[in-house]
Amino acid sequence: MAKTKYKELDYTYAVARLRALENNLLEANGLEKLLSAASADEAAKHLQTIGWKGGNFEEMLQSELEGLFSLIESLGGGEFLKTQRVKYDYHNLKVLIKSELTKQNGDNLIMNLGNIGADIIKNAVINRDYRLLSEDIKSAIALAYEQYARISDAQAVDIIFDGALFHEINEYVKELPEEKIPVLIKMQIDIHNIKTFIRVRKMGKSVGFIEKVTAAGGNIPREFYIENFNAPDNQDAGVFEHTPYRKVFSQDENLELSLDNMFMEEVKATRFGAFGIAPLAAYFWMKENEIRNVRIILICKNAGISEEAIRSRLRG
């Protein structure tokens, strides 16, 4: 691929623009305003006054997410976005394969944010013509069908796709021209592995299982999880004693939340700096997190969950 050389000064415009846009991100104060709205509908109305578009919650969140992708793309963050689009490719694949296997129609679950257009991937899966898909995806689909034929287990199918997903992310990370983003993506992989480690232990699975579901490419090697899999229960903190993630185990909060918060802290530390692509990535993650927080508020508010309980679920 003929790539123009990465010059961090190429992003000066983008970074300054994002810096201005950062002001519009809903951080503690803005979220608090949403929380204190009388109802979910009031909160949605407030969002509309600050420029969110769409009739219902889902549309609003979806259009913000799509807007974020096209903004970062237009500012030259395409190389970085590839790493973030992968998850939508695999989400679409999972939807399509599961639709095929269960004869359901999952079209309304397809998200057109992947590296591969939703139509292309859909035609490929339905017509079993995988020429336009990447090698990773091709072999994952073959493996998934084979695995499903042997043990009809949707989880096994998902696990195969997750493995391919991380492989593909790691490939894209190698092509990234600078260092801060790979550090953050490695952290994301670690966080995924830690969450999985805890969850799998709770589910009472075997060591063989953890080997299949942890992803390569993090700072903590996969062997670590396999070795420590049989550590006594309630010893999670001890297992991670010598990793940078020690501190989340000492907190009394929900573990997933603490890990997400830790990631967001790291992202926020990266956003300063007026050049290069890292501030683009930081903005991307901050906005993504904002959308997640807004979703939490809207859905929980709609269900009448107390402000206090919602607040304790917000990230970052």
Partner: peptide, 24 residues
């Protein structure tokens, strides 16, 4: 229901439905 609600708030609707599409 509360748990489920929180799960549906943290994950997007599409991902949640995809996850539960094929019960085993």
């Amino acid at each position: 229901y509360d748990n489920f609600l929180i799960a549906s708030a943290i994950m997007s609707r599409q991902v949640l439905e995809q996850s539960l599409m094929f019960p085993k």
